[in-house]
Structures are given as C-alpha cells and as structure tokens.
C-alpha cells in the first residue's frame, strides 16, 4: 500500500507536469514581432535544461521513494559524507549556472544598450489609466511639460507647455502608438502619477514607468499589424483595462500617419534631422 504511495509520489509530479506542458505548449509565448528573438531562444534553452533536470530529479525521487520503502528485514546504509561527490555536483551546477548567466548577461547588455541614433523616438506617459503618446515632431525635441498646464478639454493630459518653441510641433495622442516596421524604435517612458509598466507582449518589451524619472527601451518592430500594449505593474483600480494599441506601419504609411496627426506637416521624427531618409 505505502509502496504505491512512494512511487506515486515522484511519478505524480513528472506525469502531471509533462502532460500539462505538452498540452499547454500551444499557449507558449505570444507570436514574436520584434528583433528580440534571442530572448525566446534563451527561454527555449532554459526550458530544455531545466525540463531535463526536472524530469531526472523527479524520476530519481520516485525511484528512491519506491525502492527504499521500509519492509521486513530492510536495513538502511550508514554513510553520510562523500566529499568528492559533493564537490562534483557543486561544480557541475556552478558551471551550468555560469553558462546561463553568460548568455543572459550578453543579451541584457544588448537590450539595455543605447538606442541607435537613427531610431524613431516616441514618448509614452502612463497615467491612471491610459497611455499618453507623444512624438517630438520634425524638430526632434520634446517640449517642456508642467503639471499646472494640464487641460482636459484639449486632451493635454500631461501638461504640455504650448509656449515652449519645442512644443509647437509635438504630436499628442492617447493609447495609440504608431511605429514604422524595420526601424529601431526608441521609447521614452514616463509617468505622472503612480508606477506603471509599459508591456508589449509580442515584442518582449517591458519597462516600468516611474514618476519623476524617464526610463528608456528600444527595439525593432519586424511585422506590420496592430498589437496590444498592456500595463504590467499594479497601478490602481483600472490596472486591468489600461490598454493601448501599437500600430506597426510601413515607413510610408507611418510618415503619412504623422502628417495626418501632426499640427503642421512634420517629417518622420528622428533623433537627428538628417536621418529620416535613411
């Protein structure tokens, strides 16, 4: 009876988890639409290694639980140290960890590096419970903001100071981000109230938005289409509906879109003026 319990112990986990993993694999990562495929690869490699370790250790656990069950005449061994064995498995674990670490740090350095200079710059400001989107316009400079200048009627939710010359051609929108396909996109992320997190599931992008500071991330959208922007940090009652849309357009359509939205007729906004044509 309890022999069964010992065996079922380890097997229960392995069988449950392996079956479930097979079944749920259809809900793997959301389809990748950016240049951050390396994250997916790192994750797949981690899945294989941790999965094998998981199965091996659980099978071992199931085996010992079944094999060493107490019975008539059973005798337990008396040993409790094996320095060579202990050093061996410590070293092996350390090597595996460092392999993961090496790869992860390389990816991390790439992803947190400065955006290329020709990147399209867009600013996203989290507010309970919307994303205010801003393009700098053709001057490539964002106008000053001042909380005292908030005006709900003109949808100036972030208090853009219209008297600032840099603000003249700034484009303000709510919840819609437009980006050209194939060009690096540099996102300045801000907040004016609580902490939010700018999350693009299809792009493997996530970066917190904090009041009082500007955080940055950059990536390259690879496929045209409309994608969801989510808030990943609990930001209050409307956290669950703080949804935006990311529209990845062809470069021509993107420029046309900005002209349509802009106050004047801005070219593609760029970090430096002469790179829009690249």
């Amino acid at each position: 009876m309890s022999k069964l319990q010992g065996l079922s112990f380890g097997l229960a986990t392995v069988v449950l988890v392996v079956l479930a993993t097979g079944y749920f694999m259809r809900d793997w990562l959301p389809p990748l639409k950016s240049d951050r495929g390396a994250i997916d690869e790192a994750m797949a490699a981690t899945l294989v290694v941790t999965g094998l370790v998981f199965i091996a250790t659980n099978l071992l656990l199931a085996f010992v639980a079944w094999r060493y069950e107490d019975h008539e005449g059973a005798k337990a061994a008396y040993w409790h140290d094996n320095t060579r064995l202990e050093i061996a498995w410590t070293a092996v674990t350390a090597v595996i960890m460092f392999a993961f670490l090496f790869n992860a740090l390389k990816l991390w350095a790439d992803m947190t590096s400065e955006a290329p200079r020709d990147a399209v710059v867009v600013e996203v400001t989290g507010q309970q419970f919307r994303w205010v989107v801003r393009y700098p316009g053709k001057d490539g400079a964002f106008g000053k903001t001042d909380a005292a200048k908030v005006d709900v009627d003109t949808e100036n939710y972030i208090g853009l100071d219209k008297s600032d010359p840099d603000a003249k051609d700034d484009v303000l929108m709510v919840n819609d981000v437009y980006l050209p396909v194939g060009k690096p996109a540099a996102v300045r992320i801000r907040s004016t109230d609580v902490i939010h997190s700018f999350f693009l599931p299809n792009f493997r992008v996530k970066q917190d938005a904090l009041p009082g500071m500007t955080t940055k991330t950059w990536f390259i959208p690879k496929v045209e289409g409309d994608y969801e922007i989510a808030c990943a940090e609990h930001c209050g009652l409307g956290h669950y509906k703080m949804k935006g849309q990311l529209h990845v357009l062809s470069p021509d359509a993107f420029e046309a879109k900005l002209v349509e939205l802009g106050p004047a007729a801005p070219e593609a906004p760029a970090g430096s003026p002469n790179q829009a044509s690249e």
């Binding site: 986990t13 990562l29 656990l61 960890m97 992860a104 990816l107 997190s197």
Partner: peptide, 29 residues
C-alpha cells in the same frame, strides 16, 4: 518529500527569472 519536490520545481523556474533578459517578458506575470 513534498518540500523536496516543490523546492526542485520552484527552484528551476528561478533559473528562468534570474536571467535578467529572460525576466523581461516574464516579469510581473
């Protein structure tokens, strides 16, 4: 034995989250 099992399962997913780059999509999920 349950602790051992959970420690294995939970520990292995820690290897996912500890890789800072892999943490980006998984963070706060």
């Amino acid at each position: 034995l349950g602790v051992v099992s959970l420690f294995i399962s939970g520990g292995l997913s820690g290897i996912w989250l500890g890789q800072s780059a892999v943490d980006i999509p998984l963070h706060d999920t």
